[in-house]
């Protein structure tokens, strides 16, 4: 097949033979290599065309149509986008998502960092603690939602029982407009803080050369100075990674909200009470797969994509001013 031995390779001096090929042979080898390369990446090329590029183009077109599946798409120009900006629920869902991401992302990163700092200490049973911290992040989100629905049960739930023990009357959590978003944030934090981002911080902490701390001590640096001047700057690449991924993930909040708010037992529309947990993707889902408004939902999807691109680009720009790379970028690929 691809790499049949060249005749020259059989002369017993294979190494020399590679460099001694005549130019016309080399050309055909290069062509053959290129063909093989394309063959290997072919599955992705097909997948990219069918499941990424194609759908993106189609969804641009659909976003400019009125399309309810049963009749063919009807071109309506920018109507869907105009409708979107006039839709109160669109703004509500955008606000809910921004609220959720703005609270969840910083708190989860700070929490992960604290956990990593704690578990980086020499304490008894550290391996066991690390496993316990990590456990929530391996729990399927659907199971997490059910676990916490039960804990946040307003009358007999564990949360309100524990609050009752210290004399606080607990709220109605997911049933209360004011508490529904914070409840979901608490649940997400439970599943995120001890998970992958903590491990990434731990690895980052262990990559900091101990000599840096030692020489800082000689210079008379205290614990605070060491933390802010050494630990934080050297962890900034890990922090940046966690921030970018965390923000994209938070903006796409869906499963937890969908399962947790469609009710413990009672089937009710997800996103309640009073749309207080209607996140952007939840709203998109409702329009696409509940009301079958494929055109409008495609417009929602494209606007969402635009938001994510701008957010990521903005973070990359900002990162230049605060992310510190010990080695230059080339070494880190």
């Amino acid at each position: 097949m691809g790499f049949r031995p060249q005749p020259a390779a059989n002369t017993g001096k294979p190494r020399r033979a590679i460099f001694a090929r005549n130019p016309s042979m080399r050309l055909s080898t290069a062509t053959r290599e290129a063909i093989e390369g394309y063959l290997y990446i072919a599955p992705w090329l097909v997948g990219f065309a069918v499941f990424a590029a194609g759908p993106m183009l189609v969804s641009i077109y659909l976003s400019l149509t009125f399309y309810k599946i049963i009749t063919p798409p009807d071109f309506v120009g920018l109507d869907n986008y105009i409708r979107m900006f006039r839709d109160d629920l669109f703004w509500k869902s955008l606000w809910n998502t921004v609220y959720y991401a703005a609270v969840f992302v910083p708190v989860s990163i700070a929490g992960s960092l604290c956990c990593a700092l704690l578990l980086n200490q020499r304490i008894l049973g550290r391996t066991i603690f690390r496993a316990i911290y990590f456990l929530p992040s391996i729990t399927p989100i659907v199971a997490t939602a059910f676990l916490w629905l039960w804990i946040f049960q307003p009358n007999v739930g564990l949360a309100n029982y524990l609050l009752d023990l210290i004399g606080i009357e607990g709220p109605r959590w997911l049933d209360d407009i004011r508490w529904s978003k914070p409840s979901l944030i608490v649940i997400s934090l439970w599943g995120a803080v001890g998970g992958g981002s903590m491990l990434i911080f731990l690895a980052g902490l262990q990559g900091i050369p101990i000599e840096l701390y030692e020489s800082a001590e000689i210079d008379g640096a205290g614990n605070q100075a060491k933390f802010w001047r050494i630990t934080i700057p050297l962890l900034s690449p890990s922090m940046f990674f966690n921030l970018v991924l965390g923000l994209i993930g938070a903006m796409q909040m869906f499963t937890l909200a969908f399962v947790a708010t469609s009710g413990a037992g009672q089937t009710r529309p997800a996103g309640g009470p009073a749309y207080s947990t209607l996140f952007y993707v939840l709203n998109l889902y409702n329009h696409a797969f509940d009301y079958w408004e494929m055109g409008y939902a495609s417009a929602l999807a494209w606007f969402f994509f635009l938001i994510l691109v701008i957010l990521t680009y903005w973070q990359l720009r900002l990162s230049r001013s605060w992310v510190y790379y010990e080695f230059d970028q080339g070494e880190r690929w």
Binding site: F51, A52, G54, P55, M56, V58, S59, L62, I248, Q252, V281, L284, A288, M294, A297, S298, A301, W302, F304, F305, L308
Partner: peptide, 8 residues
């Protein structure tokens, strides 16, 4: 995001 390709 998977949401952008899900409808097509």
């Amino acid at each position: 995001p998977p949401q952008i390709t899900i409808i097509p």
